[in-house]
Design a protein around this nucleic acid. Structure first.
Lengths: 193, 193
DNA sequence: CGCGGCGTGAACCGATCGGTCCAGTATTGG
DNA sequence: CCAATACTGGACCGATCGGTTCACGCCGCG
């Protein structure tokens, strides 16, 4: 069998960066060719479904990364505060401290991609659910409150990314990361500061 | 002078909806033609700069709407709580209770549009600044805290929009609206609930 | 060593992209 | 009522869009 110039993982990484920066419509095949160093036929050979399959594959990969890496500490044994901090650090790194955008945002504008849309929704729900279960199981928050807090926590992260991207100031996103303990671990909402 | 089929305002409203729903790259000229009922030449006559000028005009219009309508209550005399509530209601209506996206998000992915990018940044800064001045002048928050709170408030709104759009659940956005008083009016962060 | 097959490059496809041109229409001011 | 003006329709442009085809080269396996 012929040897591939770049591994599946390398290509998917490049694709991920592309879709993050430019969204679905903004990521043209020619841009993908330039960035990956592969030509159309090579791309098409790996992704028979074309661009949409590429986007779906990227979503799957990132969803897997969230499940097995970024959000994994939430389900491990140990001190809840430390586990949440670990997850926060990984999220911070994943989003380049606010420099990189989120696929859930940039990849969901194209309406005529139900496959991508469904994956995004599932990934978001998994994320929120992971936060909620952590707040409920490890921190004793009542179920409904835990769900609200989880939604708000992810919302704060996503919003921070938008603000940081548009304003060029990473502080809002970093504060969203730092606020995770207050959001998911405290029963009432008071802050010491 | 010839009579125009649709007023400047009608066309700009349609364009606003288009750019909100599909982003910059996703809003093709043919889509614009269908939605506005105008043909390319007519569009091009009104916007010599083409699609980029349309996007810029939309940004200008919405920025003006924020300044003279949505955020205006913050600078009026009267009870701060009521003024903030008024602004919240207008924001809620503007974003269709979470169904409609924000241009600051959907229009800032295309990097090779410095004009649009600059307008978005300015509009966002104006928004944050309006919140911050309200928190400082009307609610007595110290300047630096007011600025942080304002950033976080806008961040919560933007995040709520993303979550609501992807999940199809409007609750997160509505909670972001409801949380405005806590965010901008309270010196410490405790909540009664 | 040669065979089978995966992976790749280049050429090519129709459709659509954003943008341009100009002749015509309609309307208002003089 | 005529001319200047504001606007619109349709045809057209080159470039690029996403997608497809096919033959060749390269590799591992027998």
């Amino acid at each position: 069998m012929g040897l591939q110039k770049f591994s599946e993982n390398e290509v998917l990484s490049t694709l991920t960066g592309l879709f993050r920066d430019h969204g679905y419509d903004g990521t043209s095949l020619s841009l993908i060719m330039k960035a990956t160093g592969l030509v159309k036929a090579s791309l098409y050979h790996r992704f028979r479904g074309g661009k949409e399959e590429m986007a779906a594959a990227v979503m799957d990969r990132v969803a897997g990364e969230f499940a097995t890496d970024l959000l994994a500490p939430l389900n491990e044994p140990g001190d809840p505060a430390e586990r949440l901090w670990k997850t926060g650090e990984r999220l911070r790194k994943f989003y380049g401290s606010g420099k990189k955008a989120c696929l859930l945002d940039t990849l969901t504008l194209n309406r005529e991609s139900p496959a991508v849309q469904a994956r995004a929704k599932a990934a978001l729900e998994f994320w929120i659910d992971s936060f909620a279960r952590f707040a409920e199981d490890s921190c004793g928050l009542p179920r409904v409150l835990a769900m609200e807090r989880a939604q708000d926590a992810v919302s704060a992260l996503e919003g921070g990314l938008v603000i940081s991207r548009v304003s060029g100031n990473r502080a809002p996103f970093l504060r969203a990361i730092e606020s995770l303990p207050e959001r998911l671990m405290l029963v009432s909402g008071e802050v010491s500061k």
